[in-house]
């Protein structure tokens, strides 16, 4: 345990959480990551629906799909399910 952790007088009552898990990056769990061939992609969004980690994001301004590698665990579901064969899993 390190000294920056809060003492008992400072910790939240009843163990109420005070940090969002978005500060806990899980992107380094895997040596793999998905890459997308934009030319093949028809933006059907199945990759977004099937991502366990919310790491396939629909950017509505750019009207495009983005991978958030901070959280992608490299499971490969998106590549496996892509009807266009537009996603490939590669070694980081």
């Amino acid at each position: 345990m390190s000294s920056y952790e809060k003492g008992w007088k400072e910790v939240s009552i009843a163990g109420v959480c005070w940090l969002p898990s978005t500060k806990y990056l899980t992107g380094d769990w895997s040596p793999y990551k998905p890459v997308r061939d934009k030319a093949k992609c028809n933006k059907c969004l199945l990759c977004h629906m099937y991502c366990p980690d919310g790491a396939v994001i629909w950017n509505s301004k750019a009207e495009d799909i983005e991978f958030n590698y901070n959280f992608c665990k490299g499971c490969g579901i998106c590549a496996n399910e892509c009807p266009q064969g537009a996603i490939e899993i590669i070694l980081k």
Binding site: S21, L25, T26, P52, F71
Partner: peptide, 15 residues
């Protein structure tokens, strides 16, 4: 359910 959860890679429950 925010990213950064620690379910396993490829977890069905997460989806």
């Amino acid at each position: 359910l925010a990213p950064g959860h620690r379910m396993c890679s490829g977890c069905g429950a997460a989806i």
